[in-house]
């Protein structure tokens, strides 16, 4: 998932400090619902997420798209210069251009 014009989506009402307040550096979020987990990783304006339950993914994607202007990129293929291929046996991670 990718946030369009990430910096324009936030209304700044408070004073802006050069240093980020504590507790804001976490970029990995986790939600547990009974036996299912949803994991969300944010890097600047790129978001990757995965879940043991497909409906949790859909719900998250819908929620985020309603709140911010962002586009859904589909299955994870490329993140931070690392390519990801999905196979039946597992996931193959490489940096081939």
């Amino acid at each position: 998932m990718d946030v369009n014009s990430a910096f324009l989506n936030r209304v700044i009402s408070e004073e802006v400090f050069v240093k980020q307040p504590p507790g804001f550096d976490t970029t990995l979020f986790r939600r547990t619902l009974e036996k299912d987990i949803l994991v969300v990783q944010i890097y600047v304006n790129d978001i990757i997420f995965g879940s043991t339950n497909a409906s949790l993914c859909k719900e998250f994607s819908k929620l985020m798209q309603n709140e911010f202007e962002m586009s859904m990129m589909g299955e994870l293929k490329f993140f931070l210069g690392i390519k990801i291929n999905h196979f039946k046996v597992g996931v193959y991670v490489h940096q081939t251009k």
Binding site: V89, G90, V91, Q95
Partner: peptide, 11 residues
Amino acid sequence: TTNLGLLYRKS
């Protein structure tokens, strides 16, 4: 050896 990478098997 550009074809090398890491394989994460489902398990």
